[in-house]
Design a binder for these strands. Structure first.
Lengths: 357, 357
DNA sequence: ACCGCCCGGTGAGACGTCTCATTACGGTGC
DNA sequence: GCACCGTAATGAGACGTCTCACCGGGCGGT
C-alpha cells in the first residue's frame, strides 16, 4: 500500500493538518515543520492519492474526449492537441472511442460522467437528430464542447473549421485553374459539417456564375466500396465527365482517388483533384494532392480552452463560444495542370496495380 | 450536485446499505425494496460516483498508456486495440504522450500512479539505460507492461513483435527476388527493437551466404533530414550501389522513400524497397510498398490482457509474460520486379515535385 | 412452546484527503 | 501583570461509497 498523509504525519512528528498544509501550500507553515514533512515525503516516496483528493474537493482535474474512430488520422491529431493543452493546465484526458455508434457514444458519456470528469470534448458520432431529453442529459452536470461536427439543434460550445468557407476556397481554386465541370464527392450528409462543405461547393459555383449540375453532386460515405461505385460511375459516363473532383473529407477523398486509380484514371492527368484533409504521407504522393488543411492541433487545444473557461464560469450564464478556425489551402500537383479529359469513354490502358490480399 | 445513495435511500424509504446492495448486487434484497430503489434511481437519474467507490474499494478500473508520439500512425492503432480490450473488461484508459522525452515519461507515469491506475502500458521513450532506482520505481505499486520497445535490463511483462524474425522475413524476401546488395536504413539504435531488426537483417544475409557489407548498414533516425542525407549519399555512391533497400520502421521508411524520390530515384524502377510498418494509405501508393505488417490492434489488446492478468495475480510471483506476436509480410510492387540499377551515377531527370510550404 | 437459523434490512465506520473551528504560544502595548 | 493579537499547529468532520457486525422476525424442527 502506498503511504498516506497520516503516516507522513507520524514520521514527521506533526499533525495531519500540517502535512496537508505543506502539500497544498494553502496555509502558512513554519520552516522547520515544512522540512520535516518534506523529508518524510522523500523517505516514504509519498504520492498524494488523487482519488481521495477528488472526493474531498469535488475536482477531478480530468477531461474526457470521445471520438468516432481513433484510427482515422484526423482524430489522433485533435487528441494530441487536446492532450497537450489539457496537461499543460494540469488536466488528465481520458480518450474513448464511440465506434461511430450513437448508443455507444451515450454509454461512453455516461461513463465519463460517472467518473466525474469536469468536462467532455465530443466529436459526435452524428446521424440522427437528438431527442430533446438526450440533448438535455448531454450537457447535464458537466459541460460539453463539440468538435468538428456539430450535432444539430444542440446549443453548446463548439470548435470547428469554417467548413463552408473552406470548401468554397477549394472549389474557387479549381475554378481559377480553369475548371467549370467540377464534381463533389461527400461523406454522409447526416453530418452537419458535410452539409456545410457541400453548401460551400454550391456557393462557390454560384459566385463564379457556373450553374450547379445535380449530376455532379455525388453523395458518398466513408465506405470504400460505396465511394468507388459512385466515382467510377460518375467518371466513366459517356458525356459531360467532370474535369475536376473535390472531396469533402479525407476518408472519402482517399477512397475516391484509390478507386479511380484502379480503373486507370490518374490525377492530374485525367482529372484535377482536391480534397479536404491531408491524405496521410501526402506530400510523398506523386503527384502531391491539393488539400484543404484543418488546424487539427489547434482545434484540440482551443476546444480544451473553451471547455476550461466554461468549467470556470459554469454558474454564470456565459454566452456560447462557437469558435470557427480558418482552414488553409495547400496547392499541390493534383490541381495544378489544367487538363482536358479525352472524349474517349474507355479509360486509358488499365494498368491496375497488383494487389495481393 | 448529482444525487447520492443517501438521497436514493431517503426517496425509496430504505437504508443506505440496502441501496448499496441493490446497486452492487452483492447481497440479496427483496423484490419490493429492489423496485423501490430502482425507481428512485430512475427518478433522480442517479449515477454512482466512481471516485468515491474507488476510494472505498481501492480499485479504480483505470489503466494508463504512455506512448512517445501519438501522431505517428502506429501508436493510435495500438491505443485502439488497448482501449477496446480495456473497455470490454470494464476498464478506462487514460492516454498520455511522453513526447519521446524520458523526463516527461517519468512525469506521466508518476501522474498515473497518483491517479491510482491499476496498471500501465508503456511504449518507452527509449534511449538511455535505466538507472536501477528508476527501474525499481517504475514497477512499484502498479504493474507495467512494455509494448513494442523493451527498455533494456528491465524485467517486466512485454508484448511485441518478433522483431528479429520479422526483419529476417523481409530481407529473405528481397534475397528471393534476386537481390544481393541489400542496404538497411534503421531508426535510432538506442531502441531495442531497432537493434533486433538490424540483427534480423544480418542474420538473413548470413543464412543466405551473403557477406555483410558495413557500408550498407545505414544507421538512421526518425528525422527526415538526417535520413535523407544518409540515403541520398548511400544511393548516389559511384559504385556498388545497393539494388534493394529495407527500412526498419515506417517513419524512417517514409523519410527514406521520400528523400530518394526527391532526387529522382523511384521504386521499383531504380531500387527494390521494403519496409517495416504500413506507410499509411499505402495500398494507394503507386507502386504499392512491400511491408512487414505488425498486428497493432492485437498488440494493444494482448498487452491489456497480460496487464490484467498481472493485476489479478499481483501477489503470487507469477513468471513474466513475454508475448512475441508474428508479423506478416505484405508483398507489393516495390519489391516485385528485379531491376539492375543503371551504372550511371547521376540520377535520372530530376523531376522534383513542386512542394509549396 | 422453544430454540436456532436464515433472510432482509440497518447504520456505523473506514478509505485518504482537505477544511475549519479551536487551541497553544509567544510577543506587544498599556 | 494583563489583555490582546497574530502565527502555528491541531484534530475532528465530511466527501460518497462499500462492508460488516448486528438485529428483528418468521419458520421449521424437536
Amino acid at each position: 500500500m502506498p503511504p498516506t498523509q497520516k503516516e507522513l504525519a507520524k514520521l514527521a512528528g506533526v499533525s495531519s493538518g500540517t502535512v496537508s498544509n505543506v502539500i497544498s501550500g494553502s496555509s502558512t507553515v513554519s520552516e522547520s515543520s515544512r522540512q520535516k514533512v518534506l523529508d518524510a515525503i522523500r523517505v516514504l516516496n509519498y504520492q498524494p492519492n488523487l482519488i481521495a483528493r477528488s472526493l474531498r474537493t469535488n475536482r477531478t482535474h480530468t477531461l474526457g474526449i470521445v471520438v468516432p474512430d481513433i484510427t482515422i488520422p484526423f482524430f489522433p491529431k485533435i487528441i494530441r492537441g487536446a492532450e497537450s493543452a489539457a496537461r499543460e493546465r494540469g488536466y488528465f484526458l481520458i480518450v474513448l472511442d464511440s465506434e461511430s455508434s450513437l448508443s455507444r457514444e451515450a454509454d461512453m458519456i455516461a461513463l465519463l460522467r460517472a467518473q466525474r470528469v469536469e468536462g467532455i470534448l465530443l466529436v459526435a458520432a452524428g446521424g440522427e437528430k437528438l431527442s430533446p431529453e438526450r440533448a438535455a442529459s448531454l450537457t447535464l452536470h458537466s459541460p460539453v464542447v463539440c468538435l468538428d461536427r456539430l450535432p444539430l439543434d444542440l446549443d453548446v460550445d463548439s470548435v470547428c473549421v469554417d467548413d463552408c468557407g473552406a470548401a468554397e476556397m477549394g472549389i474557387s481554386h479549381l475554378m481559377a485553374m480553369g475548371h467549370r465541370r467540377i464534381a463533389v464527392i461527400t461523406g454522409p450528409l447526416t453530418l452537419q459539417n458535410e452539409q456545410e462543405r457541400l453548401r460551400g461547393y454550391t456557393q462557390a459555383l454560384q459566385q463564379g456564375g457556373i450553374p450547379v449540375d445535380p449530376a455532379l453532386i455525388w453523395r458518398g460515405s466513408f465506405e470504400q466500396d460505396e465511394v468507388a461505385g459512385i466515382c467510377q460511375k460518375g467518371m466513366i459516363r459517356p458525356s459531360g465527365r467532370p474535369t475536376a473532383l473535390f472531396a469533402t473529407n479525407g476518408v472519402t477523398g482517399l477512397a475516391a482517388l484509390r478507386s479511380l486509380y484502379e480503373v486507370g484514371l490518374t490525377t492530374p492527368h485525367d482529372f484535377a483533384f482536391a480534397t479536404f484533409d491531408e491524405l496521410t504521407a501526402e506530400d510523398f504522393f506523386k503527384p502531391g494532392i491539393t488539400s484543404v488543411i484543418q488546424p487539427t492541433f489547434e482545434m484540440g487545444s482551443r476546444a480544451v480552452e473553451v471547455l476550461l473557461r466554461r468549467i470556470a464560469k459554469e454558474t454564470s450564464e456565459e454566452p456560447r463560444h462557437n469558435v470557427r478556425l480558418p482552414a488553409t489551402l495547400m496547392v499541390r500537383d493534383s490541381s495544378q495542370h489544367r487538363h482536358i479529359s479525352p472524349q474517349t469513354n474507355t479509360p486509358p490502358k488499365s494498368k491496375k496495380p497488383t494487389r495481393p490480399r
